[in-house]
Nucleic acid binder design. Structure first.
Length: 345
DNA sequence: AATCCGGGGTA
DNA sequence: TACCCAGGATT
């Protein structure tokens, strides 16, 4: 049996029962692929089901507000995916008469669709023999063929794509592409791969040379930025204040409490004399207290956020806030959602 | 070519 | 901790 035959054979016997495997609707394939970018199947699955229920067609998604889409995306991370998803849904629905591009090359032009996703949709929805190369495929190929070219170098990306193109089963690219990814996710796992009962274990180079835990090779940088977020929970009886993040930064277009960001922890005095605080509170008298004694550490892949929540009650009330009862309708970062959940206004 | 962009699971 | 996940866009 060839490598591809073994993969597709293994897939037919071991594949998980997943909803996007029961359809060839390009819309649903596209939706699932965007959701699963850098996201585990188990994490994305409930979001996929919810999106399909709320937006059965690309037209339904196109007619939603961005805020609604972001709210449903809340907790999944990489929120530009949700913004691009919505943008592309409007493009397909309103400018392309609801019809998806049907080739790798044309799919690649969609916002939020890169090399991997274009190949995935082209093969799964349109049977085009375009090979997917995701994290799973890099791992399977690097191990099986014993390739130590870094997978995140320009040379590595080019090489693995070419190799994948040679290996793809042109008679059934959809099954092969999903098969090699599933094989990487379940059998050829990053940690503790199941080499003992692997259908490729007699010809795997990494297993023979004891390189399984050294491949694939990846060049990495572990620079993590520290940021100090001081949130102002400005509240009266019924209201509080939220702002939408506009800057080109994390959590773009999500909502949060008024924020004072600093390079180091702030004292109460530093908060109440800060220009941003003065602008919000004005000359009104107020009470202030620190909600969390220790910083709440929110870890992103590339930065650690040390958050303090300051509860501020202006004596004169709030003039232009939102209703506390409606706070859960706003899309917010998990850091904020966790606070709202615990604080219970 | 490097850097940015989330949140959660695993060993 | 460190690493990884059905990656893409920007600089």
């Amino acid at each position: 049996m060839t490598f591809s035959e073994t993969i597709t054979d293994w897939y037919r016997q071991n594949k998980r029962d997943l909803p996007w495997r029961k359809t060839t609707d390009p819309y649903k394939i596209w939706l699932s692929e965007i959701m699963l970018q850098q996201t585990r199947v188990e994490q994305g699955l409930p979001y996929y089901k919810e999106f399909v229920r709320a937006f059965p067609t690309v037209h339904d998604l196109a007619e939603a507000t961005e805020e609604k889409v972001l709210k449903m995306w809340q907790g999944l991370g990489y929120y530009s995916r949700a913004r691009n998803l919505h943008y592309t849904a409007k493009h397909i629905a309103f400018e392309n008469n609801g019809k998806f591009p049907d080739s790798y090359k044309s799919l690649l032009k969609l916002k939020g669709v890169g090399d991997y996703t274009a190949s995935a949709i082209a093969s799964i929805a349109f049977k085009e023999a375009s090979p997917v190369v995701d994290g799973n495929v890099y791992r399977v190929l690097a191990r099986y063929f014993g390739i130590d070219t870094p997978i995140n170098s320009a040379r590595g990306i080019r090489y693995f794509k070419e190799l994948a193109q040679e290996l793809i089963d042109k008679t059934d690219p959809a099954t092969y592409n999903q098969g090699i990814m599933e094989f990487g996710a379940i059998q050829c796992k990053p940690k503790s791969p199941v080499c003992g009962e692997c259908p490729l274990n007699t010809s795997c180079v990494a297993l023979k040379d004891q390189l399984v835990d050294k491949l694939p090779v990846k060049i990495r940088n572990t620079k993590i930025r520290h940021r100090y977020f001081n949130y102002l929970i400005i509240e009266d009886k019924d209201h509080t204040v939220l702002f939408q993040r506009k800057e080109k930064d994390i959590w773009q277009h999500l909502y949060e409490f008024p924020l004072i960001e600093t390079e180091a922890p702030m004292t109460e005095d530093m908060v109440t004399t800060h220009p941003k605080f003065r602008k919000l509170i004005g000359d009104s008298r107020f009470q202030i207290s620190l909600y969390n004694k220790d910083h709440i550490v929110h870890k992103l892949s590339h930065q650690h956020i040390f958050a303090s929540f300051w509860v501020v009650s202006p004596r004169d009330g709030i003039s232009d806030g939102i209703l506390k009862s409606e706070i859960k309708a706003y899309p917010v970062p998990v850091l904020i959602a966790n606070f709202v959940q615990e604080y219970e206004f």
